[in-house]
């Protein structure tokens, strides 16, 4: 781990989340393609992970003992790229190449192209299973790394999410934490109407997981939950994070259309202003 990195305090994390949100809007605007809604809803969670929780080394992204992070809802990778760039895994200039030919930043994250990406994702319901495999490997080899996976609530409609949930229980994977970015909206429409997944907390609990429920935009709550997850032994932890799709940009918040649409220049300017002026 780079010696010059110090885990951030809650106020510092809040400021960093604003930078991450700014990067998200700028890169999706530049690409004129991408998924702002789910990137913004996960921004506070991913910020807390990369700037406080994760034991990683940007100078040595393949460090065998590093903590693993998988954004299983891979379409939201702009938030991942922003965090990796701000954390120093690659030059921020790459952010402007998102989704362009020859870029290290693919439309859905590619572990072979992007330094710091621990698993290729994009097809929903698979990153969490890969996380199970990494956690099993950690147990087998007596490694103390932790595996963090962010899934979407729409993603929880995939059967393989529950296959992974069963496996986490079977093998007592207390080195695995899943965070559900419960923003309530999927590609087509509202999750509750399109294909209800609630009660998610009871479902995860019934699958044998320790469940925590938090406001996914309250940085203090996020930090507390993630730190608690590390202390739970004998079973994996699932943090249900209640979030707002498009959080931080008023016209994107809770609007299904912003799942996978790039802002115009005018919209991007408004969005960046709102993010900058937010408390």
């Amino acid at each position: 781990m780079s010696s010059d990195f110090k885990p951030m305090s809650v106020p510092e994390l809040k400021e960093m989340a604003k930078i991450i949100r700014t990067d998200i809007i700028e890169m999706i605007h530049e690409a004129q393609s991408g998924h702002p809604g789910g990137s913004l809803s996960a921004a506070d969670i991913v910020t807390a992970l990369y700037f406080r929780m994760l034991r990683v080394d940007p100078e040595n992204p393949g460090w065998p003992d590093r903590d693993r992070f998988i954004l299983s809802k891979g379409h939201a990778c702009p938030v991942w790229y922003a965090a990796l760039a701000e954390r120093g895994f690659f030059d921020k200039a790459h952010l402007r190449t998102l989704r362009k030919l020859g870029s290290i930043l693919q439309g859905h994250a590619d572990m072979k192209k992007t330094p710091g990406v621990d698993m290729t994702v994009g097809s929903l319901g698979q990153g969490i299973c890969a996380g199970v495999g990494m956690a099993l490997s950690g147990k087998l080899r007596g490694k103390d790394y932790h595996v963090w996976v962010v899934v979407g609530d729409g993603e929880c409609q995939e059967g393989s999410v529950w296959e992974a949930a069963m496996a986490g229980n079977k093998w007592h994977l207390d080195n695995l934490t899943v965070i559900v970015d419960k923003n309530g909206i999927q590609n087509d429409w509202f999750v509750a109407e399109e294909m209800p997944v609630d009660p998610l907390n009871d479902k995860w609990r019934a699958f044998g997981w320790h469940v925590l429920e938090i406001d996914g935009h309250d940085m203090a709550q996020i930090v507390e939950a993630l730190e608690t997850a590390l202390t739970i032994k004998g079973k994996p932890t699932c943090v249900i994070a209640h979030t707002v799709k498009g959080k931080g940009v008023s016209f994107m918040e809770n609007v299904p259309a912003w799942h996978g649409k790039a802002p115009t220049t005018e919209q991007a300017e408004i969005a960046l202003k709102e993010i900058k002026e937010a408390a």
Binding site: C129, A130, G138, S160, A167
Partner: peptide, 18 residues
Amino acid sequence: VAEQNMMAAAAGMATTGL
């Protein structure tokens, strides 16, 4: 009976050198 999880978990294991 969960082949999808098995395959993606195998992928995760392989990233660690197994």
